[in-house]
Nucleic acid binder design. Structure first.
Length: 586
RNA sequence: GCCCUCGUAGCUCAAUUUGGAUAGAGCGCUUGCUUGCGGAGCAAUAGGUUAGGCGUUCGAGUCGCCUCGGGGGCACCA
């Protein structure tokens, strides 16, 4: 927002370098890292170090400070800045804060819900996430994927990319056959009772137990799979019906979480194209067909001439000719690029599949697809239970998503009723949902993807401190002030000269939104936005405590009302990117 | 055995992207704050050899190498 001033100063500093016979080097600008101080900073250590390397006998820090002081004197009073100082080798330029603050506020109020949106980039990006398996339950371990994928999609879209949100449904495979086999054998004709998700999940756990306990049944399941493969009409009909039960359950969950998709892919639809692809690979001698004694494989390291075990061997078809995940994933990758002019294809998949993802990407590269370099595995660490227990549907060690959501919302409702009894019951319900679901989402977004998360009920239901409700509460407070002020905002007032440190800190953060969104998009990091939202809320609370708004003198009151409106907007926009609702009251 | 990943306050996590000034929050502990716009809030106090070592650099939590420790992956699961 202040590029013009920065460029002007940078030009001056280059002149200063040239006049002093100093060699040029790229200046790196940062914002001044001290709270309540608003401006830009650069250092002269590189210039000083360069002199030292050229043989001058100088102490680098001392020389950097000298240069900073000389630059300060050379610059005098540059336009747009109210103060310039040279400290410890740094040159700090402080914005004319009242003027700049008005500029920031003006922009935010004008762009409103589009504040922070990047210019359209003419680039289409696909984000594949969620990838649930039908006939299994959706549990808390799957939540991180959905939340991350959805937030990354929101951020990319807001940053200016065209985003295709893709879901890849695991509707076929051994797990489905196990479930069907158990259903046909022990629950034939039964309809889902009660909680759809739970019912499907219970049957899966039961099927898995029988599968490992009762010998001989593995063969039966494989025979069932062969029947499905041979398009047995009765079996296909049952498969479609039971699959629908799962999909219905998923739709409910996505709806509750406020997540949507543009394109659904189904694993079952990639079977045939996948097998054709395998034949191609065999013909092209990239794959080796060891059937019937062995599977179809690609010896990646051998083809690449690698000594070390880096890419190892990828199995792309079972020895009995049935497909694997890889069979279908290869076909799907190609289909995606046929359907959309993608400049990037992102896979949100847990970190344990890193090697597998690299194998798939490398295989596609070997097949000659130029876009193979545009495939990206966005890996995230898993969600564990206390005691380092991995959640597993097979073992039944899961916390059901439904249970968590229900518990969080009912806990939130209790608090809303206590804090805000005069709100009507329907509004209380709505607030409880916003708070409960926000509280579930935020912890998954506010830590790095590479860190393992441990789920425990107490932490998940803790609404205090660095959590979504804190941010939502700041939004509510801002809203409350504006409601009490009534009517429309006053026009900008030029008469205010000096700002309080709390005001400066708040405006500074609001001004960073556009740039931070670009950075978060470039690095696929919702964490940056989660941190920003929290910092905004904290800065607002600080301001709220130190700076009266409604009772202030007219000039100050006008300015602060506009600042409050800007802060509310910045909070709402950053929460929207995280998929967290910003209620008006709570 | 090979590869990946993590190690920061008692606990859970940050640290502005290719290194920059004083390593910051929350929870928990202790002590305060409400006739000022919502106390789901705020203030203060205590808590650190950034696992350890060597190196690169004017400058390292951040980059490189080594050691220790946790987690994960490595041929017909997904």
């Amino acid at each position: 927002m202040f590029e013009a001033e920065q460029i002007a100063v940078e030009k001056q500093i280059r002149t200063f370098f040239a006049q002093g016979g100093l060699s040029d080097f790229p200046l790196q600008w940062n914002s001044i890292p001290f709270s309540g101080q608003w401006g830009i900073t650069t250092s002269f250590f590189q210039a000083a170090a360069q002199e030292a390397r050229q043989g001058k006998k100088v102490s680098v820090p001392q020389r950097a400070q000298e240069l900073a002081e000389q630059a300060r004197d050379f610059l005098g009073q540059p336009a747009g800045f109210e103060r310039v100082e040279a400290v410890k080798g740094y040159l700090n330029l402080f914005y004319s804060s009242a003027e700049y603050a008005r500029r920031v506020i003006e922009t935010v109020l004008e762009k409103a819900q589009d504040y922070g949106r990047g210019d359209p980039k003419e680039m289409q990006v696909m984000v594949e996430f969620s990838q649930p398996n039908t006939h299994k339950t959706f549990h808390v371990g799957h939540l991180r994927n959905v939340i991350t994928g959805s937030a990354v999609s929101n951020i990319l879209e807001f940053a200016g990319y065209t985003v295709v949100r893709a879901n890849y449904i695991g509707d076929i495979g051994l797990h489905v056959m196990k479930w069907m086999w158990n259903y046909m054998k022990h629950h034939s004709g039964e309809q889902p009772a009660g909680d759809l998700q739970r019912w499907m999940g219970d049957l899966y756990t039961e099927a898995d137990r029988r599968f490992s306990d009762e010998p001989g049944f593995e063969l039966e399941v494989r025979q069932l799979f062969a029947r499905w493969d041979g398009h047995d009409p009765d079996l296909i009909a049952l498969w479609k019906k039971t699959r629908e039960w799962s999909l219905e359950g998923f739709a409910q969950i996505y709806d509750t979480l406020g997540v949507n998709f543009d394109r659904f892919y189904f694993e079952s639809e990639e079977e045939e194209p996948g097998k054709e692809l395998v034949n191609q690979l065999i013909e092209r001698h990239l794959a080796e067909d060891e059937r019937p004694d062995g599977p179809v494989i690609i010896r990646l390291d051998e083809i690449l001439g690698n000594q070390a075990d880096k890419y190892r061997v990828l199995v792309i078809l079972r020895s009995d000719g049935t497909s694997l995940y890889s069979t279908k994933d290869l076909a799907l990758a190609i289909r995606k690029f046929k359907e959309f002019p993608l400049s990037r294809s992102i896979y949100v998949i847990d970190v344990r599949q890193s090697l597998y993802m690299q194998q798939i990407f490398k295989t596609l590269e070997l097949m000659g697809y130029a876009w193979a370099k545009d495939l990206y595995h966005l890996a995230y660490e898993i969600v564990n239970l206390p005691g380092n227990v991995t959640m597993s549907s097979r073992e039944g060690t899961v916390v059901l998503l439904d249970d968590l959501i229900r518990e969080a919302c009912s806990r939130a409702l209790e608090i809303v009723r206590e804090k805000n009894p005069e709100l009507d019951p329907a509004a209380q319900e709505a607030v409880a949902r916003a708070v409960g679901i926000g509280a579930i989402k935020y912890p998954m977004l506010s830590r790095d993807n590479t860190k393992i998360t441990t789920f425990d009920w107490q932490t998940a239901l803790d609404f205090n401190g660095q959590a979504a409700p804190y941010i939502q509460y700041a939004h509510v407070r801002a809203n409350s002030i504006l409601r009490k002020a009534g009517g429309s905002l006053p026009p900008a007032d030029e008469s205010l000269g000096q700002l309080e440190p709390a005001e400066i800190a708040l405006v500074d953060l609001i001004a960073r939104l556009p740039r931070d969104i670009q950075r978060a998009a470039a690095t696929y990091r919702p964490l940056d936005i989660a941190t920003l939202a929290y910092d905004l809320a904290r800065a607002f609370n600080d301001f709220y405590n130190q700076c009266p708004v409604l009772l202030a003198e007219p000039a100050q009151r006008n300015f602060r009302l506009r600042l409050v409106a800007s802060a509310r907007q910045a909070l709402a926009n950053s929460l929207a990117l995280l998929g967290i609702a910003a209620p008006a009251a709570m």
